[in-house]
């Protein structure tokens, strides 16, 4: 048994998420990961935007900042730049981070600022009732795509990698132990770390797309996610409909607050 109570704001429970929503599973994995890393709660700042996933900070007993829609990374950049000693974790969703907050997403990755981003991908705008999001798959139904989405979805992990993130990974709420491990790696990485977490929405996405029961979504994750090792050995045909999970990208790149500190040092030396 893991004792979550010291880490949560118990009086806020039960949480607001729907029955079977994976966001609570992520929250627990996150708590175990931060506990395992020995992160001091006073020095942790959890920043979120607007949406289902963005309600996460309200349940965690650290410094928590629930910001405006899409802007978590902008606020978090201010926190981290002002106080590089703080451990900054952003919790956001597919709509929050890659639609309304898309600009901050690519630029925080470009700067490679030392922020850990847990991006819960639930394939829909859940909080507002199931509107189509940038990760809704082509053909999926949503309240604003009643005949099926005609748009291709974003590859949000690929986007972060292309923009310059030094660490990119993907996990899911079925493979919970792996998820915990990936969260640890993402937090430990110095630089912009993006962990995309597949946490499909049962209420607003599943029900419209023949996976209305949370168990069906978990089965879907079980059957469609494959490890990186397995993926490498698969043919293109076998890869059809499968989703890679694990560390997708991990490189060393100069980090923003380090670069700023270097600049300060250089100017001092020149003086």
């Amino acid at each position: 048994m893991f004792d979550y109570l010291p880490y949560i704001r118990e009086w806020n429970f039960p949480h607001i998420w729907c029955s079977g929503c994976g966001d609570g599973i992520v929250l627990k994995a996150l708590i175990r990961a931060t506990d395992g890393l020995g992160i001091h709660r006073d020095e942790a700042v959890m920043v979120s935007g607007i949406g289902c996933s963005s309600r996460t900070p309200g349940y965690v007993d650290v410094n928590t900042l629930h910001t405006t829609h899409g802007r978590a990374l902008a606020f978090a950049t201010g926190v981290k730049h002002a106080s590089p000693n703080l451990n900054v974790i952003v919790v956001t969703g597919d709509g929050d981070a890659t639609a309304i907050g898309g600009n901050h997403y690519i630029h925080a990755a470009r700067r490679n600022i030392d922020i850990t981003v847990l991006l819960y991908n639930n394939y829909i705008y859940g909080m507002t009732g199931g509107q189509v999001s940038p990760t809704t798959r082509k053909g999926d139904r949503a309240s604003t795509a009643p005949f099926g989405s005609i748009e291709p979805p974003f590859n949000i992990s690929g986007l972060a990698k292309a923009a310059g993130a030094s660490f990119v990974a993907r996990g899911d709420v079925y493979n919970v132990k792996k998820l915990e491990k990936l969260i640890k790696l993402a937090i430990q990485k110095k630089g912009f770390s993006l962990l995309e977490i597949l946490s499909p929405c049962p209420t607003a996405w599943g029900r419209r797309n023949k996976m209305g029961h949370p168990v069906q979504l978990m089965e879907w994750l079980r059957d469609s996610t494959v490890s990186m090792e397995k993926w490498e050995k698969m043919t293109d045909e076998e890869r059809e409909g499968k989703i890679r999970t694990g560390v997708l990208h991990d490189v060393a790149r100069p980090e923003f607050t380090d670069e700023y500190a270097k600049l300060v040092k250089r100017l001092k030396a020149e003086k």
Partner: peptide, 12 residues
């Protein structure tokens, strides 16, 4: 983003 960063910094 500029306004957001200012609020984040101010909170520290």
């Amino acid at each position: 983003g500029a306004m957001g960063s200012v609020i984040g910094a101010a909170l520290t």
